Amino acid sequence: MTVLTTPRLRLEPIGDQHLDGLHAMNARPEVMQYISGQGETLEQTAAFVARVKRGWAAWGAGWWALIHLDSGRVAGAGCIQHLRREAAIPEDLLTLCTNPLEIGWRLHPDFWRQGVASEAASRMTAFAFEDLAAEELLAVRHPENLNSARVMDRLGMRYRGLETWYGRELATHVLRRAHWSSLHRAAG
């Protein structure tokens, strides 16, 4: 499992050691507003950790805990994983391997408006294109989640429209490797 770093973060594959920090974030209704609409119980967060571990085993990618280097706290979580159309999680995660790769993130409110999501998303995008050789990367969001839309814009993603993912109509953004490479050549 791959550990990634940025100037302010260490992205660690989520494991049992992250449960308390993840629950401190996922229990907050404002964090889950556009995901489930309510904060998670400790049992729900533990089930999330178990699913994430299955994802890493199946795909060699999944969710990372975003560890803030200065404080050592779980600042958030981010992922590179396969999207699914259905709300229900299949028993065999390998059936999702033909679906596009998704980038996603969520942050503890203590780390909002500090560029942490963009910093983590930029590093995860590089992992998807450089290490996994993905040709494109999708991101989905609740149509009203404008903060995530701004992070997607900063990554160079383009809005594609409303599509069904996770059993819901979600705003879908796309970034192709060729476009990402040209943005990085221009910036470098």
Rank of each mutant, 00 (worst) to 15 (best):
R28A: 11
T5W: 03
R54T: 11
G72L: 14
V74N: 07
I67Y: 12
A46T: 07
S36W: 07
L11P: 08
N26W: 14
N147A: 15
R177D: 01
H23Q: 09
L107M: 11
G167C: 03
G161W: 09
G37P: 03
T45W: 00
R160M: 04
T125L: 00
G72P: 14
T98F: 11
I89Q: 09
M32F: 03
S182W: 06
V116H: 06
E102I: 03
E30S: 13
L9T: 05
A117E: 03
K53E: 14
M32V: 05
W56V: 04
E40C: 02
E135D: 15
R168A: 10
R141P: 00
P13N: 10
D92Q: 13
D16M: 11
G115S: 09
S118I: 00
L155N: 02
Q17D: 14
M32P: 03
Y34R: 02
A65Y: 12
M152D: 02
V49N: 01
V174T: 09
T98Y: 11
L132K: 15
E40Q: 15
C97F: 06
G55V: 07
G167S: 04
S122A: 08
H18L: 08
D16R: 15
L93T: 12
R73K: 14
M32W: 01
D70L: 12
L9Q: 08
M152W: 05
V151R: 01
W180K: 05
F111T: 00
E102Q: 12
T45C: 01
S122K: 06
W56Q: 02
A50F: 09
Y159I: 01
L162F: 10
R73V: 09
A57W: 00
A121H: 03
R73F: 08
V140E: 00
